[in-house]
Amino acid sequence: MFRRLPDLADTASVTLTVDGEAITARASDTVAAALLAAGHAACRETAVSNSARGPYCLMGVCFDCLVSIDGLGNRQGCLVRVRDGMRVETQRGKRVAGR
């Protein structure tokens, strides 16, 4: 798990939802950092075997932090900054048509 250091520079706080549940984050966070800070070590289940996966490299290489953001699936959570009102959904297994 990860926690914030004390005495960080002040910044705006934003609220986003993860599977409908509200979490707060720092405005400069990426989605992947916000998920880890909120205690989500896992952010998806794989399409092949439904095993749990979470952010791994945080530099845009591994694609293990894939999440759905505001309705668009398979976004790299480590490359997208949080926004107030953002809707993040975890991906579970294979994509199902119409969902």
Binding site: R3, L5, A33, L36, S51, G54, Y56, M59
Partner: peptide, 23 residues
């Protein structure tokens, strides 16, 4: 591949960009 396993680089990125340290 287990959640909770990250690269050392990832931890460094979290520290630099988000002020997050492993607890």
């Amino acid at each position: 591949t287990l959640p909770g396993v990250l690269t050392a680089g990832a931890a460094q990125i979290l520290l630099k960009s988000a002020g997050l340290a492993p607890s």
